[in-house]
Amino acid sequence: MIGLNHFLIFSGTLFCIGLFGALSKRNAIAILMGLELMLNAVNINLVAFARYVTTGILTGHVFAIFVIAVAAAEVAVGLALIVAIYRARISVNVEDFDWLKW
């Protein structure tokens, strides 16, 4: 029987993979993908909690939908900025972004 703990372990693992990807990748697009994994881990959390903790109340679902919408907005801005920096540097490698002292 699959219970709440399975979902939490799954989302915790997914969050860690996303965090590791965001911190270790050098390509800015790959970093954004890592960030998306983190947010999706949160969504799994929210929906699992809505199912097992507050059965019948949809707060968790609503929260997850808002997270998806905001994540889309964030990625839209992120990709626009990456396109802009690619024009200036011909690179999306974060190690090349060294005009400011990191």
């Binding site: 969050f15 996303g18 965090l19 965001a22 911190l23 800015a28 970093i31 954004l32 960030l35 983190m38 947010l39 881990a41 949160v42 959390n45 929210l46 699992a48 909690f49 903790v53 707060t59 968790g60 929260f63 997270v67 964030e74 801005v77 992120g78 900025l81 990456i82 802009a84 920096i85 200036a88 974060v94 972004f97 005009w99 400011l100 990191w102």
Partner: peptide
């Protein structure tokens, strides 16, 4: 300016993810 924005976005989104995971646990 663009470089600052990319850095802000990556680190800001990372911190939002961490904050959000905390919020989901509090909710759960």
């Amino acid at each position: 300016s663009i470089e600052a924005a990319v850095k802000y976005l990556i680190l800001g989104a990372l911190s939002s993810g961490v904050l959000l995971f905390g919020l989901s646990l509090v909710y759960g």
